[in-house]
Design a protein around this nucleic acid. Structure first.
Length: 279
RNA sequence: CUAGGACAAAGU
């Protein structure tokens, strides 16, 4: 069944979910028993395509074959509901999962916490975190980052920063910082955001990525600080990162408005260098 | 040797 798992994984990589399902059938016909991973792969594929009803059918099939869902597969399924914003079914699944002695872990809880806060249910998100800790699961970067995101979305930036600086057992990464950078930019504090970028750089291990730069450039643009935005673009290009065409456009918009002609031509030149055609 | 969880996306 290892062989089949490799094939199934490959098919799913090409989004060939039906072909993978077909292969699952063939497997059984040939007396090859799908294992937990086989099912996990297929559930993941179905979830990614929003075909949650078929997952339910598959679960029946699994049960009849004496192969109950394991923790990973439960989590995959739970997360699919979270992504749809269907926290009712996500919560039901969690209950079921606990009943079946498949212990929810940090990944499971983080997915749920993220789901609750995206749907604006911050109280429940906090409760999930409490439950997670009570169950002895250790928060990791993903958990902290999700929590910081929730605080930011509620406008609690001071608390978010406090959380950043009190992380234990793991270190913030570029995503953690990006979330805070976004939050400051949205509050019209692009300068503060830029400080955070410097802070992450000076940590020596975390490098800004395209998301970081794009966020910061947009932040400066919405404050009409196109000089700074242009500076950031320059740094980005120096580092060999490729901005999205929209980033160029939003910057050009501002530079034109302020009649910063020489910089406009320079940006256009840089665009051309990178194979972007103005459109 | 990686089957599951976290981030941005302008102007008009």
């Amino acid at each position: 069944s290892d062989t089949f798992n490799i094939l199934i994984k490959a098919l799913l990589g090409f989004n060939k979910v039906d072909a993978a399902l077909h292969l699952l059938g063939i497997m059984s016909e040939n007396g090859c028993i799908p294992d937990e991973k086989t099912y996990g792969l297929i559930v993941g594929g179905l979830c990614r395509h929003g075909r949650l009803h078929q997952v339910l059918e598959l679960i029946d099939d699994m049960n009849s074959k004496g192969c109950p869902l394991n923790a990973i597969t439960y989590t995959t399924f739970i997360q699919a509901f979270c992504k749809e914003g269907n926290m009712v079914d996500a919560g039901k699944l969690l209950t079921k999962m606990k009943l079946y002695a498949a212990k929810p872990d940090t990944v499971t809880y983080t997915a749920l916490i993220n789901g609750y806060y995206w749907t604006g249910n911050f109280e429940q998100a906090d409760r999930m975190l409490d439950e997670m800790l009570a169950m002895g699961c250790v928060p990791d970067v993903f958990t902290y980052t999700t929590r910081i995101n929730a605080l930011c979305k509620q406008g609690k930036l001071p608390e978010a920063l406090q959380t950043l600086y009190s992380m234990e057992g793991c270190k913030p990464n570029v995503v953690t910082y990006n979330i805070l950078i976004t939050a400051f930019c949205k509050e019209g504090k692009a300068n503060r955001a830029a400080e955070l970028v410097n802070e992450m750089k000076s940590s020596g291990e975390i490098l800004p990525n395209v998301v970081t730069y794009r966020t910061l450039i947009d932040g400066f643009c919405r404050e009409d600080n196109f000089c700074k935005a242009d500076e950031v673009l320059g740094e980005m290009l120096e580092r060999g990162l490729v901005p999205h065409i929209e980033t160029f456009n939003s910057l050009l918009h501002g530079l034109c408005k302020h009649e910063m002609v020489s910089q406009v031509s320079r940006v256009l030149y840089e665009m051309g260098n990178r194979g972007f055609a103005p459109k």
